[in-house]
């Protein structure tokens, strides 16, 4: 990597993290106004946050909505990825296009259309609608993530297991699934994270459920407040913890796999009888 590439990456990182760093700095700034110059270090916005019951319930709501979204997104993504990477799938292009629909159609159009149907057939909007709609939007991401790993799994392992007498289910559970652990964890966390970050779908489908993003949006339309900074930083920190944990898990899982890969490439001829 030359100096030009290193400089590019440094600049890109600065651009991507500039707003986040500014947010974090102001969450520790001892002033009501979010303006320079800084006035001094203070934890009072975090103290105020800790005492704010509305934020607590919003946070719990967001958290409870995000878990099923992660789970449904992961399972649907696994199913879609298993089908997509199977060489026998018919209408592959149509199926792939269908999976991309929730990604390509603007979320707001999709949510408004869903809200229209629900109110037309007198279904109440709320947590269930929100969870289902968010899960739909997560499917393209989880499918891509799991497919990327699944496509590299050696199909001969399944064949070997089957030749040795495993039932299809046993082969799936004992041979394929262990290789997908880290991809599934990644898919789960991406679902949770996208759900936590979502505002658009919540605006149309949350009903009386009040996730954190919605609460922030309604407070924020009026004025900027430093305790919101503190809350954003808290949410970001929690998200970073989720990302770091799933990345650590992935690396932990990937290490033996990489060694096995290296061993396999080192002796290709001996490995094939």
């Amino acid at each position: 990597m030359n100096r030009f590439a290193a400089a590019t990456l440094a600049l890109a990182t600065t651009f991507l993290y500039l707003p986040i760093v500014v947010l974090a700095v102001f969450s520790f700034n001892d002033s009501d106004l979010m303006a320079f110059p800084l006035t001094g270090f203070s934890l009072r916005w975090y103290e105020e946050l800790a005492g704010n019951a509305a934020f607590h319930s919003g946070f719990v709501t967001s958290f409870l909505v995000a878990q099923p979204v992660g789970l449904i997104g992961m399972v649907a993504g696994l199913m879609a990825a298993l089908a997509l990477t199977s060489p026998k799938l018919k209408f592959r292009l149509a199926f792939a296009a269908l999976i991309l629909v929730p990604f390509l159609v603007p979320k707001s159009v999709l949510s408004i259309a869903q809200a229209m149907i629900m109110s037309r057939i007198h279904l109440e909007r709320g947590a269930v609608a929100l969870i289902l709609a968010q899960s739909l939007v997560v499917i393209p991401f989880t499918t891509a993530l799991i497919s990327a790993v699944l496509i590299r799994v050696d199909p001969r392992l399944d064949e070997a297991a089957r030749d040795l007498g495993a039932t299809p289910w046993q082969s799936f559970r004992l041979v394929l699934l262990p290789q997908l652990n880290s991809a599934l964890a990644g898919a789960y966390s991406i679902g949770v994270i996208l759900s936590l970050a979502d505002l658009t779908i919540s605006m149309f489908l949350a009903g009386r459920t009040q996730p954190l993003s919605l609460m922030v949006a309604s407070e924020f339309r009026h004025d900027l407040r430093p305790d919101l900074n503190a809350m954003q930083v808290t949410v970001l920190a929690l998200t970073a913890v989720i990302v770091a944990l799933s990345e650590l898990y992935r690396r932990h899982r990937a290490r033996p796999q990489r060694l096995a890969d290296r061993a396999a490439t080192a002796e290709p001829i001996e490995a094939a009888p």
């Binding site: 986040i20 500014v22 947010l23 658009t200 993003s213 949006a217 954003q232 949410v235 998200t239």
Partner: peptide
């Protein structure tokens, strides 16, 4: 990780942060 983390921040967080910048 560096590339993807900003994506995980909520829409509203980014909008909010840019107003401060």
């Amino acid at each position: 990780v560096v590339l993807l983390t900003p994506l995980y921040t909520g829409e509203i967080v980014r909008i909010y942060a840019w107003r401060i910048v």
